[in-house]
Design a protein around this nucleic acid. Structure first.
Lengths: 344, 344
DNA sequence: CTGAAAGCGCTAACAC
DNA sequence: GTGTTAGCGCTTTCAG
């Protein structure tokens, strides 16, 4: 019923190894026999068995993608499909399949990764997040297993290959943009400081402030999670500060929309009263009211390069680690205005 | 370096077959030896090799998820991460992995599916779309390979297991909602008629019209793709009809946002001048201006059930095909109003 | 209750 | 250029 390499070999009057070589298109086989074997394969409807091939060749032709499925990384966020699309496009052109893992907790992720690695389910792994002191990443390093990460690793930066934006720089830029519009009371809305991306962006923000001689005020630090839990409360308390912010640096357009909605409920207008800048430049941000000034971080590219580097490493494990920086672009729209209070 | 079942066997003074039985928790092994073997496994850091197991047992413990990566299925749409989350949650609790395939064209998808099936990469497949006359689905049926689909199959409905909303009914309902508000000029914005979901929803829409005695006008049929390509043009020509619509039934909140944005540019107010209803109930739709009345189709559930049914079929191939209908809910918000022209 | 041994379908030396 | 053969690591009869 199942047609194997032996059946093909018999039918084509060659040895199984010859068929195997035809499959891998070995140059040591004459075009004539290649042609004949391929015809038989076609005729018999032969398809190589991945498991058997993996077992014998010790390569699975699949890469694992670790995608945190947590409250932190809101799943309704288009970030993930977009990176995935990048990864899968590259993987596919290199004939690699994608094995997806979505753990909810750190332990679950760790468990899945170890079993993927030890059980040889995949040839390499791309990590879609970078958190401080991550045992999964440590495990991967210690096991010397091929992996790349989307984001900057917390530790051993020089020893892992990763793809990232220059988050410090770009956040400094976008904060400067607000400063140049006359804003000095600028809040930073970000995710957990367990994630390196948050740390980097916060540093960029602080850098811009300090270069402009604006003191850092930690009342202006808002945790994204608080907004997701109870946005109204979080925004209310922010705007009820003695000197409420007139500018907001947000990490994600989705959060920006939500904040704007709450502000409007409080009769605070964007951009008239408060200016807001954000990241990710979702398609939608062009059409929202107001349209949002957002940093395009080239999500697709991030995924594409991460897969590309990973496959290079798989093919040549001695490759030196490297950092790929994906350029970003500030897309200026209508969510920012000059600070009205500038003369105060 | 790699610890195999033999190493464990030697260390525990049993035969490899015994270790194998311990792994599958065979009742024929005494608790005593189970315990001992497990200790050795732990101590040696043993992890079973998936490939070898698959090859010998002819089961991969992985399900394939086919996700069309096309312009039609805008990838920035949160639909996919959300179904995926449902699928992966269920798969994971059943100890199945997820193998992802994202083809861009019909042929690419077909190619990937055949190779997944014939190459025994997966034990079953969930199809994340249903299109008219789909050769991939036909192939799966003919090969008698376990699969489920999210959406209603075009053909052989009674012979495949699928998970869907009652799209005809719910679209009729939501159209009725508009009719009850006094709208008679109601446009339908939908995707390609190659997709069964579009066909069903269009039928629901037509049903509502006909029951209300409103003639169907095909000038009110707008193709979603046109909006994605050139929304401005599409909306302009719709609103410049002799009698422009005062109500809109849209297939996706994302499209709704975009339409609203174009309408506002034309100084047409939502909901004052035009009412709009939509599907998917994205998180965001609560915060958009105006907030959108949308059908919650329980995307997560759709995925969860599709995976559940698939795994049941894999475990018991003789199971009869069945249809799972996931209930929907209309979430009323602020994008609709009574028709001002009602007295005209 | 446990062991021995024969594969699963393929690849990769090693021959010739 | 092509064939022979010995595994890859596991499961599964069949014995005992």
């Amino acid at each position: 019923m199942i047609v194997t390499i032996k059946d093909v070999a018999k039918e084509a009057n060659v040895a199984p190894s010859t068929v195997s070589r035809v499959i891998s298109n070995s140059p040591r086989i004459s075009e004539k026999t290649k042609k004949r074997v391929r015809e038989v394969m076609e005729q018999l409807g032969y398809h190589p068995n991945f498991q058997a091939r993996s077992l014998a060749a010790k390569s699975t032709q699949a890469i694992g993608v670790i995608m945190p499925n947590s409250a932190y990384h809101a799943f309704q966020n288009p970030f993930f499909p977009e990176v995935l699309r990048g990864i899968s496009t590259n993987a596919h052109t290199n004939k690699y399949g994608i094995y997806l893992s979505t753990g909810s907790t750190e332990d679950e992720i760790f468990e899945e990764v170890t079993s993927m690695v030890q059980g040889r389910r995949v040839d390499g792994i791309v990590l879609l997040y970078s958190r401080v002191n991550d045992k999964t990443m440590k495990f991967l390093q210690e096991a010397d297993f091929p992996f790349t990460v989307v984001g900057r690793p917390d530790e051993n930066e020089e020893r892992v290959t990763y793809v990232d934006n220059d988050n410090i720089f770009i956040t400094k830029q976008i904060t400067n943009y607000l400063i140049k519009l006359g804003h000095t009371n600028i809040a930073f809305v970000g995710g957990s400081l367990d994630f390196v991306v948050t740390i980097d962006r916060l540093n960029g923000y602080k850098l811009a402030l300090s270069e402009a001689g604006i003191p850092f005020n930690d009342e202006y630090l808002v945790n994204e999670e608080l907004i997701k839990e109870n946005g109204k409360k979080a925004i209310t308390s922010l705007m009820n500060l003695q000197s409420p912010p007139t500018g907001l640096v947000t990490q994600d357009d989705l959060i920006a929309y939500e904040i704007i909605s709450h502000l409007e409920n409080m009769k605070i207008r964007v951009p008239d009263d408060v200016s807001i800048v954000s990241f990710n430049n979702l398609l939608l941000s062009e059409h929202s009211k107001p349209s949002i000034t957002s940093v395009d971080i080239a999500i697709y590219q991030l995924g594409y390069e991460a897969a590309k580097c990973l496959i290079e490493i798989i093919k040549n494990p001695d490759l030196l680690p490297r950092r790929i920086t994906i350029p970003t672009k500030i897309i200026e729209r209508k969510s920012c205005a000059n600070n009205k209070n500038i003369s105060m």
